[in-house]
Design a protein around this nucleic acid. Sequence first.
DNA 1: AATGAATGAGGATTCATTCAT
DNA 2: CATGAATGAATCCTCATTCAT
Lengths: 176, 176, 176, 176
Amino acid sequence: MRDGFDRASTNRIAAQAGVSIGSLYQYFPSKEALVMAVAERHNRDLMNIVRRALAEVAAAPVRTGVRTLVAAAITAHAHDPALHRVLSEQTPRTGPLAGLEPFNREAHALLRAYLEDHRDELRATDLDLAAFVCMTSIEALTHTAVLYRPDVLEGPAREPLADEATQLVLGYLLPS
Amino acid sequence: MRDGFDRASTNRIAAQAGVSIGSLYQYFPSKEALVMAVAERHNRDLMNIVRRALAEVAAAPVRTGVRTLVAAAITAHAHDPALHRVLSEQTPRTGPLAGLEPFNREAHALLRAYLEDHRDELRATDLDLAAFVCMTSIEALTHTAVLYRPDVLEGPAREPLADEATQLVLGYLLPS
Amino acid sequence: MRDGFDRASTNRIAAQAGVSIGSLYQYFPSKEALVMAVAERHNRDLMNIVRRALAEVAAAPVRTGVRTLVAAAITAHAHDPALHRVLSEQTPRTGPLAGLEPFNREAHALLRAYLEDHRDELRATDLDLAAFVCMTSIEALTHTAVLYRPDVLEGPAREPLADEATQLVLGYLLPS
Amino acid sequence: MRDGFDRASTNRIAAQAGVSIGSLYQYFPSKEALVMAVAERHNRDLMNIVRRALAEVAAAPVRTGVRTLVAAAITAHAHDPALHRVLSEQTPRTGPLAGLEPFNREAHALLRAYLEDHRDELRATDLDLAAFVCMTSIEALTHTAVLYRPDVLEGPAREPLADEATQLVLGYLLPS
DNA sequence: AATGAATGAGGATTCATTCAT
DNA sequence: CATGAATGAATCCTCATTCAT
């Protein structure tokens, strides 16, 4: 129970950030607000990566586009993994901080839009469900890799994971 | 920060369990040990479900076996979802409590063994990686469903999720 | 701003009382509740003195009874003057702690009842108002004496104050 | 504990006053000094009312003069009752702020002087004590009325209080 | 063995005060 | 002079843990 954000008392956070608690509370009305702000900033960063990738891929066929999206997901998770770990492990998903899942909601909506634009290439019919499955799978694979196999996210070892994830999603989306 | 296990003070836990904190500390040397024990018990339950499913499926071909395994995963996650949620959200994965991932390790090993037994039906060659991909995907889909769409886990609505997960894994494992 | 109860931090109170703050919070849910409890106890003590005096005097004529009541008021204020001082100076009369004035309300009611029982001895007609005037005057004289002239409350010096207060009230209540 | 001046942080006071705390501290060396200044200003206002009334009444006999003095006391207490309330409730009478009672001291001195000038009309001999009794009683009656019965201080309802207070004091001062 | 009162370190938050701009 | 961001001591309160009964 004494790790991550729990281990992060406001006083410690302030000290680490090189400011006094007083100053911290000048900018954030409560610890919750502070955590929220950090998490939102992180999510904004991630969403930027995802959005850029989807824009870049918009006109590309699913067969090649997915590869790029998977790469973007890996890049996103590789961005400040320590923070990502702490946030994903310690941020309550119930209570006032649950407001963080909007991130996933937007990503889901964007992906579904992409799939709808490429509906004729796909096997699936329920694109909402399909987007959910793809999002969740890619997210889980890259996320788990970040947490337990940081090695696969840098250097050449990064390829196998990307390959498998792409394989997985394409096998699911495309008609056999 | 004030939810789940954080909100569960030892005194509250003891009261809820109908024993005195004194007694609690007679059995568990610390709060961490207590949480650990609860988590391990929960994981043992889950592993029993998974083990049984894999045993049942051992001789079945992948094409039909996966379906059963997915069903087992859903059943496992549907077992005490409240506890599952709390544990997955609040249990630190770093620090002394990280000892929980052995669970995943065993499940991973069992699945890999199954895949190896059915190697000739499969496309993939790196079965270790393949097991990781399958485990992670199924886990994520059922887990996310438990957390955010408890509805899809009961009643007929349960089928679509199982269908999609099966699709996903088979499309990945089998040669096209 | 740094005196009396303000100067009394919960930790200091606990230390002074020879218990740990933990223990304090086992009995009182908040600082407010603690202050409230102390104040109520004090008021109960005071009311006992007042009640006893009024009972004792019930059958006595106003001319002699008032003298006894004044003495009781002095006795009441002389009971733990330090606490009385702190409470009267620091207890907010607005907010949740305002609940303390019921004390005065009861004293007022008792006095009015006494006056009504002796209506024929009195000049005044509005006995409610008369009770208010007597209560307030006696209270103020003894209270102020406690705060600024603790000397007049002990020893022979105590008499002049009692004499004057009695004089004041009798001159007001009795027909000239 | 969170009311009145306690709830008035220096920053809040400064904001309300439309200046920066910096400026506040240019004029007042500490919060205490600031509160002191406000209280002194208020007391000066009150003393002006009292002084004027005593001057006006100097030549008048006690029998009619007291009535005017009581009216002045009521007027004084009715002047900014909100501020009066806060000051009387929150200003410590011990410690560095105790300097406020000089106000009462002056009023007491003035009243005693008046009584001495009219010594032959009076019953009492210890005029110092008599002044104390009158001051305290009138103050208490008007003060309590301000705090708990603001209604009696405006409109025709104001008369009963003034009548009773006058009665009380005259009955005490004059020979029966 | 069971109890639960007692402990006190630690955490979130406020606010009087300072000082660089 | 005026400003207001920065400071950090001090406050109220929680909770894991101990120990006398």
